[in-house]
Nucleic acid binder design. Sequence first.
DNA 1: GAGTTTGAAACT
DNA 2: CAGTTTCAAACTC
Length: 515
Amino acid sequence: MRSNVPSTNIIFNRVSESGTQQQHPTIVGVLNKPGTVISQGSNLKRTTAISTSLGPSPKVLIRPVSTSQPIIVSAQQQQQPKYLLSPTKIITALPTRTQIPITGSPTKVTVVRSQGPTAVRTGGQNVVVKTINGGQIEQKSSDSLATKPLTVVGQPQSSTSVSKVQLVRVVSTTATTSQPTTSISSTVRPIAPATQQIHIVQKPTSYHRRILLPASTPIAIKPAVSSVASGNSLLKPITTHLTSKGQSPHILSSSGGPSANNDAMKNLFRKQENGTSVYLETSGQRPRKPCNCTKSQCLKLYCDCFANGEFCQNCNCSSCANNLNHEEERSRAIKACLDRNPLAFHPKIGKGRNGGGIRRHNKGCNCKRSNCLKNYCECYEAKVPCSMSCRCVGCKNSEEAASTRLIRSLSHDSLNSDDLAPLASVNNWTVPERPVAASVGQVGTRREVPVAELLSDNDVSDCIMMCMLNQGEESCKLDNVLLELQLAIIQEFARCLTQVSCASRKTAPNPSIAW
DNA sequence: GAGTTTGAAACT
DNA sequence: CAGTTTCAAACTC
Ligand SMILES: [Zn+2]
Ligand SMILES: [Zn+2]
Ligand SMILES: [Zn+2]
Ligand SMILES: [Zn+2]
Ligand SMILES: [Zn+2]
Ligand SMILES: [Zn+2]
């Protein structure tokens, strides 16, 4: 902002148009300049000018998904107070992430809130300084109202509002210059024990990427996409929900081989939903789609059932031999396939969870006309970016493209699930479950993450901001270039949103936020 | 639902 | 291998 606050800025503006009924703010991420290094005892200053937030604040419970220590924000319980903002929302202690020792001076996060146009005109600024130090967040507030500094927000405002959130690098520790903000009574806080806690678990910062980079990437510019994943033993496998097609043979038949359990296919039933066929399982198992083979007898890899090493069950196939009644025939067919390709029944998508493996299509696709943006493409269908092993023409399913789509999606305040899916898949993010029907290509049923709603809770957004901040720092520590930094932050944003979304869906009585 | 498009699998 | 055909699903209308 100021003179001595220089160029390495991460600016996120949340702006909602005034007057319009539609108050969903637009979220734009802008990065001015590659941060050479933000870190180094990083003194970051975050200035927030916040106006009124949107209506109901989602009661959110963000579930930890990784091993790293969570940032904990205690929020007042229950959805209840729709407009009644809880006065006691506070950020309480958190053990710092273990992997990144905060050496030197503590990381400072300064939060400045000023009332938006429609809010109180006092013009007074409420300044909150959060200091992450030794695993604790201290908070200092300029006004003694420290107890409610974070909830200053005006009531569900009328029409006009402008919110801005800025992340600014501060050159010197003391350089709180322009802001009157700095000098403040230091109230430290754990103020109120909240009834409900919001946990946003920070992404593990020690990147595997460091390890991966030298080995696998000759290219310097690579979005900070793939890295994560493997480290978290607590991460629960997400793949299930991401493969809405019920395909993903790799997951089910990890053991491979046609003899894989067909028990999984028990209790399948069809269900109509929105005029679209949906295939669910009662036993809590994977949805599977019946085949419609007519000429292959379901004994060629054309048949998905057969290709997945499964027996046909509840299929619509004709002259099916992919069942126990034709074991001889079937065995021959299997042998023939293995003869042609010994890996015929191996998973098509590499596993990303362990061993630093990357989730990619093993053989790659060979698309010519779909730009790898339709389910004709096996990569796209599996929600993985195209990779080196692909021979596609005019591919728009690259990792970079996926990130670009995500950013564009965010800029419209709608985190499109289809745009998020590839990155989520790659990064092993846990994504809220969604009906199978809402799969790619179903224009009518496509859902979107209501970003604005999810961010309407200031504490939630605070947490997210901090996570983003941390990721930005980490990215800088890795000497990443601008693009990498940008993506790291954007993706962290998206990752947090998925957590919030997951939580809100779980908590909200009315899962209107479904996506 | 019928017809077209698509790219993997199979085949030559 | 490469070129062609077959196939079932994805997609379009
Ligand atoms: Zn079949
Ligand atoms: Zn079948
Ligand atoms: Zn069959
Ligand atoms: Zn492709
Ligand atoms: Zn591909
Ligand atoms: Zn591609």
